Simulated scan of single mutants.
Amino acid sequence: MSGVGLEKATEIAARVEEFVRNVVIPYEKDPRRDNHGGPLDELVFEMREKARAAGVLTPHILPDGSHLTQRETAIVLKKSGLSPLGPLACNTNAPDEGNMYLLGKVGSPEIKERFLKPLVEGRARSAFFMTEPAAENGAGSDPSMMKTTCRPDGNHWVINGRKAFITGAQGAKVGIVMAKSDDGACMFLVDLPNPAIRIERVPNTIDSSMPGGHAVISIEDLRVPADQMLGNSGEGFKYAQVRLSPARLSHCMRWHGAVTRANEIATAYAVKRQAFGKPLIDHEGVGFMLADNLIDLKQAELMIDWCADVLDTGSLGTAESSMAKVAVSEALFRVADRCIQVMGGTGVTEDTIVEQVFREIRAFRIYDGPTEVHKWSLAKKIKRDANNPQH
């Protein structure tokens, strides 16, 4: 990947940070911010118009359609994440950011024009339909368990199944649907809404930063033209791998920004708040927590940059992204937890964004693969490498 260079990326990031701190953060008090799982689309698109005017909409994708390198993207996305609303305003949010990356890499010119362009322009949201209900023993952390089927019918494919935890499906205009044919996994692009794709319910979840929440979906006799399949029948998992590692890493980038902000708030509180005759920060128990926060944030930043460098070589970075996802999500959770603790009762209220950041990071330890699944995958690699040493 060529990118624009770290200096130019830093300039873009500075503009993004200024926009998020001055324009987006005041929206954190907007009543449209939390509506059964996520902000209302009315709020999202209002912020995006302001981002467009400020020149910071979709800042990780250049006007010619090329992407910043992963290392450059990290610089920018961390700044967009300084507010949970920042990625939505700047169009760097999940799942859209990962979906744009995938379609930019493997989409046909027709697919790019029809499905990718409105996403890059920030005029539409998307959803990635892969996870399935646990009660039906469908695909979750193990995508090979996929139950949703697709079969050819003339110049169309017909898809049937159920999906769960589909982020942003409610209100999305673009869908990427994974299903299983006789050849294996397949991936399809569909316009939304579609009468064959029905939202059964949107459960309440611990997080609240993603518009549309995380829906349970039924798909009944969905007909998709054959030219809306990505690649060929059976190649779905190959394309999922293209999306997987960068999407994992961009989650790390965005949430690093959010936790950095939480730490700023906790630090300001500890410096000003008096207890037992001196500022909280002068009490070793509090000061040491904030010191540990700096250490965890720096280690997380270095893991992100290391994995980004691996991906920028063209490697899929499967193991490296698993390591980064585990290390960063666990480190950021420790930081968010300490921020709550430092702030005491204030930390568990909605008076600051720290409480929401804590909830979001708790969810982050699960989505894009729970810590335990990544460790299990790494353990399999360790065993494989040990049994097949390279000489």
Results as ranks from 00 to 15, higher is better:
138 G>R: 07
189 L>F: 09
110 E>P: 04
379 A>K: 06
264 E>R: 07
146 M>V: 14
319 A>C: 12
159 I>G: 01
292 D>V: 08
48 R>S: 01
169 A>Y: 15
154 G>E: 02
218 S>Y: 00
170 Q>W: 07
95 P>D: 02
17 E>N: 10
245 S>I: 09
94 A>M: 10
22 N>Q: 13
238 K>R: 13
16 V>G: 08
332 L>A: 01
232 N>E: 12
181 S>A: 05
220 E>I: 04
239 Y>T: 03
120 V>R: 06
382 I>K: 06
228 Q>L: 07
62 L>D: 14
171 G>L: 04
82 L>D: 03
169 A>P: 11
109 P>R: 02
339 C>Y: 00
193 P>R: 00
93 N>I: 08
42 E>H: 01
208 S>R: 13
238 K>W: 03
286 V>R: 02
269 Y>K: 06
161 G>F: 08
134 A>F: 06
85 L>R: 05
100 M>N: 09
191 D>T: 11
336 A>D: 00
253 M>G: 11
51 A>R: 00
47 M>V: 06
173 K>P: 02
51 A>I: 02
174 V>N: 03
295 I>T: 15
14 A>M: 09
151 R>L: 07
110 E>Y: 10
184 G>P: 06
348 V>C: 06
58 T>E: 13
24 V>F: 09
63 P>M: 14
18 E>P: 07
197 I>N: 03
51 A>C: 01
128 F>D: 02
137 N>W: 10
97 E>K: 12
386 A>C: 09
223 R>K: 07
112 K>G: 02
268 A>D: 11
176 I>Q: 06
369 G>E: 11
228 Q>I: 00
213 G>H: 03
102 L>H: 03
245 S>C: 10
64 D>M: 12
347 G>L: 09
311 L>T: 07
134 A>I: 10
139 A>Q: 10
16 V>P: 08
291 A>I: 12
365 R>T: 15
176 I>R: 02
368 D>E: 12
251 H>A: 14
347 G>E: 05
156 H>Y: 11
60 H>E: 15
110 E>I: 03
161 G>C: 06
207 D>Y: 09
251 H>M: 14
50 K>I: 01
47 M>E: 00
361 I>W: 05
33 R>A: 11
321 S>I: 13
337 D>N: 00
282 D>C: 12
13 A>V: 13
86 G>Q: 04
226 A>N: 00
325 K>E: 02
371 T>M: 10
